[in-house]
Write a protein that binds this DNA or RNA. Sequence first.
RNA 1: GGCCCGUUGGUCAAGCGGUUAAGACAUCAGCCUCUCACGCUGAAAACAUGGGUUCGAUUCCCGUACGGGUCACCA
Length: 485
Amino acid sequence: MREKPVVSRFAPSPTGYMHIGNLRTALYSYLIARHGGGKFILRIEDTDRERFVEGATDVIIRTLATTGITYDEGPGVGGEHGPYVQSERKPIYMEYAKKLVDLGAAYYCFCTKERLEQLHEEDATGGYDRHCRDLSPEEVEKNLAEGKPFVIRQKMPLTGTTSYTDSVFGEISVENEELQDQILMKADGYPTYNFCHVVDDYLMGVTHVVRGSEYLTSTPKYVLLYDAYGWERPTYVHLPLLMGKGADGTISKLSKRHGAVSFEDLVADGYLPEAIVNYIALLGWAPKGEMAETEFFTLPELEAAFDIAGVNKSPSVFDFDKLLWFNGEYIKKLDFEHFRRLALPFLKTPLPAGVDTDAALRLLQGRIGKLGEVEEKCAFFRALPEYEPDLFENKKNKVTLDLAKQVLEAALPVLSAVSAWNNDTLYTALLSVAELLACKSGAVMWAVRISVSGMSVTPGGATEIMTVVGREESLARIRIALEKL
RNA sequence: GGCCCGUUGGUCAAGCGGUUAAGACAUCAGCCUCUCACGCUGAAAACAUGGGUUCGAUUCCCGUACGGGUCACCA
């Protein structure tokens, strides 16, 4: 018996931004499809008119495009199961809802919102009392003829249990008496998620339903729908949640209070899409076997290696430190031209005329975790920071204020005399200063570096920094230092 | 609160009855070095808990604790 080809989908609702948790769901769903050589569909779930956000669909499409997650069917690319935006599929749902009523698995409900609110006040845990479940056909016809507003509810079995097998969590069972007669069609004629996703998944031939584990306990209700229609149930793949760590160390569901958690925010902060994808792929999934120690994956490599069996059950905490490390590694691997092109926009304004921007960026490439650090790390190239003379003191290199003064006094004429201003000549020149003063070369380098940078920690050594800021500025900065000493 | 799910170092995680319980990030130390960083070497650090089952449990079963999810005319 042959396996059916895998068809999976990503079905976000357009909320205006792409949360990193949603992106991971999209990624896993995509990987399951591609690993199985199957199809991947994008579907927009916009049946909540009140929460509709203009342009939100574009954010989703853009994000998928920049991460390289391609889909075979969906908005913009079309396909044989369109349209792929639920608001454009509206007539389909009423048709299928009526079919369900005929099948005896759903019913019209004419209860007003006021009555529902009253019910809730009387018993907050009771839920809907199934008032309209057993209305006679005549009564229903009469109400419909009068034009009374209605919803369509799912008729849940009152006894027994419903079970299904999730490919990550295993068998899930719930008592049917726990299930509410949930609303399938709203009074505004739009379907609820509970209903339309089932209809669409069926109509679009989706074999693998991949989504967050918040749906784990409501899935029996969906399974009942498949059964009522006589449709084959899909394979369910529920994913563990993504958590965030708060400033106080508490763990909770990843949200804005944990910092930039939308994909576009991270990119704007200088994280590379490839690094983000690589990192989130590993949050909740780990490769098996001999691949278990591998950490770096390109998208195609993930497509080859991904396997549902490697998906974890427990929630994972999003760790910005590790993302930063991953990102730094990806930045290091960039060829310089590429890095340069990405880094330049992160400078608020161009560096001063005398400063060698390319040289500065070369220094930075191996030392930053994200492109957003470029500006701050370049600040001292723009202007010498304020600093106190005692910055010159350094135990390891045995530098005292007095020695620093001697070094700089000796270095000034030597550096002025250097014919070509480059790393090698400057290095040789400074070594001669060390020889002249009979001190460690480290002491000379230290004093010079502090004087030209005004900082104890810099993205490069003394000569490298002088190369970047240029001859005039370097000498000027050394003179300023001498005034302080 | 009812129901469902989860629990290996601070974090991500391997493990799928017998292991010195991998690896990575972060942390710390040493080395290297024209500082920092990179790199290299090393260190500290974990099976929530109580019962079973078993010759033997991190691994299987039950309870407890803790954490999470869910109970909408939201998805």
